[in-house]
Design a binder for these strands. Structure first.
Lengths: 85, 85
DNA sequence: TGAGGTTACGCCTATCGTAATAATG
DNA sequence: CATTATTACGATAGGCGTAACCTCA
């Protein structure tokens, strides 16, 4: 698992879809799809409910989103003006 | 920046050298050296003092180590038995 | 001279974009 | 028919190991 997985996952979760996340991150939909797939495989759990047209976070997805946000926001960079990432 | 950079950096810092970190992580020294180099370049600051034979954390290195540890320890995984990474 | 860090180089995997496909409203 | 997610596929980039080099006890 790498930070890229968390960034992509967070973008999808917060924007309600792969397509919108892809536009915002300026990558292809397929890149998002692949990374989310790998992430779900590594975690051994589905993160999104793909039944309907609009995806929804699963229970595991909700929990993992909290952790992802925590990680991505971790360093408050008291010693550095700009964010690390 | 990816989690790999943080893992390598933490290993070097906590084991007092690139060689020992490489042995523990089971990668080549050159892999460690390259990733630390990239990390320092991205941060725009040296993380280690290489003047003497044994390396030492710089001021920025000390600060960044705290952040790295925070990130790597972030998810307490209340909902999952095993660690994410 | 042996151990540690850096650099050069080639391999190999993984990520990416394009494009085609299926499904949904 | 427009939008969205998945999949196949080829190209590219990046991480890794090997090996050579330099430095220091």
């Amino acid at each position: 698992m790498e930070l890229r997985h968390l960034r992509y996952f967070k973008a999808v979760a917060e924007n309600g879809g792969f397509a919108r996340a892809a536009r915002i991150l300026r990558v292809a939909q397929s890149a998002i799809s692949g990374q989310i797939h790998d992430l779900e495989e590594e975690l051994g759990a589905s993160l999104f409910d793909r039944a309907k047209r609009q995806i929804r976070l699963t229970y595991h997805g909700e929990l993992f989103l909290k952790d992802a946000k925590t990680v991505l926001a971790s360093p408050d960079c008291a010693h550095s003006a700009e964010r690390y990432w």
